[in-house]
Design a protein around this nucleic acid. Sequence first.
DNA 1: CTTGACCTTCAAGCGTACTTTAAGTCTCAG
DNA 2: CTGAGACTTAAAGTACGCTTGAAGGTCAAG
Lengths: 154, 154
Amino acid sequence: MHTRDLLGVGEVARRSGFAPSALRYYDSLGLITSTRTAGSQRRYERGVLRRLAFIRAARNVGLTLEEISAALATLPQGRTPTKADWAKLSRGWRERINEQIEALESLRDKLDSCIGCGCLSMRTCAFSNPDDELGDRGPGARYLPGRLRAADAG
Amino acid sequence: MHTRDLLGVGEVARRSGFAPSALRYYDSLGLITSTRTAGSQRRYERGVLRRLAFIRAARNVGLTLEEISAALATLPQGRTPTKADWAKLSRGWRERINEQIEALESLRDKLDSCIGCGCLSMRTCAFSNPDDELGDRGPGARYLPGRLRAADAG
DNA sequence: CTTGACCTTCAAGCGTACTTTAAGTCTCAG
DNA sequence: CTGAGACTTAAAGTACGCTTGAAGGTCAAG
């Protein structure tokens, strides 16, 4: 067998869907941990796959790697996390997603009224009003309004 | 009066809510246009404010500057855009926002079933399944799943 | 004409999340 | 033991959307 209980980066990549480079990056951030062979190649336990599944799901919800890292840090150390541990971690996501949905609905409704009146003028149109907290999140791409990126790790 | 019919960068910044540096950046991209004084300082017509309102609203909806640029390019050249022109431009956003909302709802529902079963395992859990088109969008931050970032300028 | 506020350009930096490249090393089926 | 293939590191690159800094020029009220 070449299917041991320790997996190399390539195999974890295949099974998790993450690129090897992404796995090394996560490794460097401490999001996942590995043992090393005598020749310093990474070897992962199977549990890493569940961890990676969590990471991907969290990314889908919109969490940053830093937020994910913080969430993972709350897992019980010593024993292998149970299903309940993982479920607890992701329970908060539901509300987060709901907030994102609400924000988008509000945006859509504003758009409806703005198209209705044809306004789109500065600081009077709710839809484009810059005081609706924007641009106060530092540099970097902001694909969605601030409140769609509120920090709240499960 | 120092409130002419041509506005300097600082004034446009104050009125639009964009930082002067952002305005110069947009200028460099051709998103907004300016005339120049003899001393090569930028002077904007009042119409730029509506244009900037559009830009901000489009950013709120999730459009990239490139998409916004393409949308603005479809405005009638020669005459000043009417309210109807602007409304036409933003009409497509509604569907875009609805798609975003649907994607999030689907994500939330998957999460519900995943928490119910406690699964979160690789390639079997719909919520974290990497084959749900992820990681195929090149480098850069991806705060939300691919389908939440589909290109479709109003 | 002075002066202070405001403006100019260009280059580099930032933050997130990785990927790519280069040059070299390790592993293990046969 | 060999060789193909998988792996290693560090540094730089990519993408987006700006901000910051340095060094200097302009504008307009008084």
